[in-house]
Design a protein around this nucleic acid. Sequence first.
DNA 1: GTCTATAGCCTGATAGAC
DNA 2: GTCTATCAGGCTATAGAC
Lengths: 209, 209
Amino acid sequence: MPEPSRQQLRRQQTVEHIIRHAVDVMARDGVAALSLSEVARRMGIRSPSLYKYFPSKLSVYDELFRSGSAQLLSTFRDAAAAAEPGLAALAAGFEATGRFMMDNPVLAQLLQWRPVPGFEPSAEAFAPNQEFLGEIRRVVLDAVDRHQLRAEAASERGLIVLSILISGVLSQQLANDPKSGFDEGRYTSATGDVLAMFERTYAADGGPQ
Amino acid sequence: MPEPSRQQLRRQQTVEHIIRHAVDVMARDGVAALSLSEVARRMGIRSPSLYKYFPSKLSVYDELFRSGSAQLLSTFRDAAAAAEPGLAALAAGFEATGRFMMDNPVLAQLLQWRPVPGFEPSAEAFAPNQEFLGEIRRVVLDAVDRHQLRAEAASERGLIVLSILISGVLSQQLANDPKSGFDEGRYTSATGDVLAMFERTYAADGGPQ
DNA sequence: GTCTATAGCCTGATAGAC
DNA sequence: GTCTATCAGGCTATAGAC
């Protein structure tokens, strides 16, 4: 594979520019209210030029979904990898995910809710998201291996419960108290309690303590 | 207070018609994509006529928010009242709320998320929602009085955790599996587990079992 | 309370010159 | 890859006749 030419690099930068401005517009007007005209206006170009980079408005959402999922995945991965494997890694990943979402509310809404009529992520854009679920399962399995949680915690039902907890914290925070940061948020600050509830419910029977 | 005249009744019916058609449009095109022109088209009238009933598009959202919150409140109240006071009432209210939301996904999105740029419910529209929170607190306090839960369960933190659980179940179900009903839903069917987790965490120390 | 007519915007997307 | 010009339509909201 040849390395990317200068032209391709330049093009890639423009694509990132477009996405960045699109996020700004969504932050101001709502995720569903993205206007390509407004993006072009902010970039100081004419709207037809955007169509050299994206074939349609929905494809802009798709690229944002893809890159956002990928960022989220590596955020979780890095945080979990930096902690002791098992419960500590789960807690670290959980918290890092929450912080990332609160720092990127537009992305959070796009990934968690389905706010854009007619937009369904393509299989390619959805791939990092699938991988994210696998990553969580892996971390929970680590905790099971270390006798911190029962095997049940890594069952489909256990992981669904875990996803409900993350989603609940973030949904409530974004909808009812969107201006607070992660640490001050009425809901995000309950992250520890909620995770502790999960850990206690699925604690290994004869584990330490 | 005089009872409403026939004219006022007729007017009220038209208002309800408008709301009903607005919900249909939102169900098809997305909550944020409501178009009054489309509502008028479906009603077989011209769009200017709508302005005799609502001063603006946002006021349509406000009325929907108000009436939806009121319905949700009475749904919870009725279900809780029909059950044994305490934990059973909490579970019944929890489930009835979930069913109502899944039967009314447009309403669920409007009440739980904030999908409409520029729309904030008026104080009047928000009132039933506040009352709903009070109702939940009351039911949890009943459970505390009956020594089923610790007093902590009715603390602000306890109620926040409870709201996270409800919101998490519904958010995940609406976003990822919106076509299933309450009973088959991958997430709503975990309602019992999630509530059990709460009950166990806040169980009265020396309570029965 | 309904209508026609319209103001005054906005949008996404395309054709084709340079 | 940028532009001008434009299509073809959408929308909210208002004025004013009936």
